[in-house]
């Protein structure tokens, strides 16, 4: 019975998580750590009540909207670029260095500039999020599109099929496992991007809320925001994984089917 319980995949991580929470709580109380250095878990829980539920929802929704918009744009734009990079040597030679340069620009540093150029509206925040989420997607999609066995391309050529079908019926489906590794990295980066953009300029959003709270030394509620942010990130990541499991079960490694 005990063995079976321990072998369930969720039990062990859950146990260690609860253990850490208990140690944290005890340490915070025994050593009387001030809450602006490290609030105890129960204090963080109280931090949630600092703001009304509707206001929390507003913050979460604002961050979620920016993260998903940036993520969406990253998907829509990376697909044609990846197809171009995979299909044309000329294009890949011309574009790839440029992409690496863009990726090398620290987005946190450019964010204020983007805000000045595009204003403090959603557009600037979406662009910042997009810049962070975009690169891993292009790289994974291009790698995926190039990973097709050359034999299938020969089969396609010998059938004299139209070129677009080589993309839609062979290369793209073959790239699905790669695309999803990219999507999983990209979705968590999109949350980071949204928070960074809210640090720089926003009146709403969890990133804004955390910065505002810390500037007022209200650490427990800042921690509460952080907890929500982690939850949001995890849920989005799981949603991408779930989409892969439901839509493309064949693309998962064998043992996890």
């Amino acid at each position: 019975m005990k063995q079976r319980l321990l072998s369930m995949p969720v039990v062990l991580p859950l146990l260690s998580f609860v253990a850490i929470l208990i140690i944290w709580e005890l340490a915070a109380r025994v050593f009387a750590i001030p809450s602006y250095i490290l609030p105890a878990p129960t204090r963080i829980l109280q931090g949630f009540s600092a703001v009304s539920a509707e206001r929390w929802l507003e913050h979460v929704w604002a961050t979620l909207r920016i993260a998903l918009s940036g993520f969406g744009f990253a998907i829509v734009l990376s697909l044609p670029i990846a197809v171009g990079l995979a299909k044309s040597r000329l294009l890949s030679r011309a574009l790839y260095p440029l992409l690496v340069v863009i990726q090398s620009v620290p987005v946190v540093a450019v964010a204020p500039i983007i805000i000045v150029v595009l204003g403090t509206g959603d557009a600037a925040r979406i662009v910042i999020t997009f810049m962070i989420a975009f690169f891993p997607l292009v790289v994974s999609m291009t790698t995926g599109l190039m990973a097709t066995p050359p034999e299938l391309i020969e089969l396609s050529r010998s059938l004299r099929a139209p070129a677009y079908r080589q993309i839609t019926q062979i290369r793209l489906p073959y790239a699905v496992p790669y695309i999803f590794s990219g999507l999983k990295i990209s979705i968590t980066l999109a949350v980071i991007g949204a928070v960074v953009s809210e640090f720089v300029a926003a009146q709403v959003g969890i990133g804004y809320f955390i910065q505002f709270s810390t500037s007022m030394f209200k650490l427990p509620q800042a921690w509460a925001g952080l907890v929500l942010l982690v939850a949001l990130s995890l849920i989005l990541f799981q949603a991408v994984s779930l989409a892969q499991r439901l839509l493309f079960p064949w693309s998962l490694p064998k043992e996890r089917r």
Binding site: P149, E151, L152, E154, L155, S158, V176, F248, W250, S251
Partner: peptide, 13 residues
Amino acid sequence: IGMVFQQATLLPW
């Protein structure tokens, strides 16, 4: 022509 390769190279999906 029909071609058969060293690896079956089927479509996994």
